[in-house]
């Protein structure tokens, strides 16, 4: 272990291939299914690389305790939690400060997207549970939560989508995985935005970047976020497109039976 061993790791080779074979601007595979938790008002299950995430939405509903309610808007309560077995070294089930911070910034990211003024005195409760993780879990959580909110029929001005972007081995890359996050010069920037207006609603940074590197990183992140948006769109529409296929089948059957 130590610097000597690390210097031998080539994060992006001469052919532009990363440790797992991806190109610098390539995302890990993302799969989303909407409506997986029958009891919730809206829900989604998402896989992003190794990350596996459940998101559920309850609301708008009575905001309790009453003193947390606002007479002007719905209060968004976002809870991000990681299962004890979701990380290589078992995590204590008690929520840590990292989870509390992530819950806060994710809730704040969603508030810009939701028409909260339409539901004063209520709360919109979003809970996300990470059951398997490998870097980028907070963006995965936000991506899933956004789908769950649409699935719940909560009016929004836009979805929320994003990616992580950053640096490893001197190169700007999107969607860092765990090995890349461990690079000695690693920079990790989770970023989320509203895809149609490009408003940035979540932005954090760990590491050091030059101004020029940030410009390059942002451009890459915006393109990637739009790719994530497409996956969200497909996932939401899939429920209904399949339904139409059923309806056409039924119609055909009815005609044949005559």
């Amino acid at each position: 272990m130590g610097k000597k061993k690390e210097e031998q790791i080539i994060y992006v080779d001469s052919k532009g291939k990363r440790l797992d074979g991806r190109k610098v601007d390539e995302l890990r595979p993302i799969k989303i299914t909407a409506g997986v938790i029958p009891r919730a008002d809206g829900s989604a299950y998402l896989e992003w690389g190794q990350n596996k995430v459940f998101a559920a939405v309850y609301g708008p509903r009575e905001c309790l305790p009453k003193h947390t309610a606002s007479p002007y808007k719905a209060v968004i309560k976002f809870v991000y939690r990681m299962a004890a077995f979701s990380v290589p070294d078992r995590k204590n089930p008690k929520p840590g400060r990292r989870e509390v911070e992530i819950s806060k910034v994710c809730g704040e990211a969603l508030e810009r997207a939701i028409f909260v003024e339409k539901f004063p005195n209520t709360s919109i409760d979003v809970t996300v549970e990470i059951v398997d993780s490998n870097a980028g879990s907070r963006i995965a959580a936000l991506t899933a939560a956004s789908v769950a909110l649409a699935d719940a029929g909560i009016p929004m001005r836009d979805m929320v989508c994003g990616t992580s972007v950053g640096k490893a081995g001197g190169k700007i890359i999107v969607d860092l995985d765990k090995d890349e996050e461990d690079a000695s010069d690693a920079v990790d920037i989770p970023i989320a935005m509203l895809p149609n207006s490009k408003e940035v609603v979540l932005l954090q940074l760990d590491g050091v970047l030059t101004r020029k590197e940030w410009d390059e990183a942002y451009k890459m992140a915006e393109v990637s976020a739009m790719k994530v948006y497409e996956v969200q769109k497909q996932a939401l529409k899939a429920k209904y497109i399949n339904g139409e296929a059923d309806a056409n089948k039924a119609e055909k059957k009815g005609v044949e039976e005559k």
Binding site: A150, P155, M156, D158, M159, P195, N196, K237, Y240
Partner: peptide, 12 residues
């Protein structure tokens, strides 16, 4: 013919 399906934030 079916009506067009949109998601939140999509252009009408």
């Amino acid at each position: 013919m079916t009506k067009r399906l949109v998601i939140p934030g999509e252009l009408v």
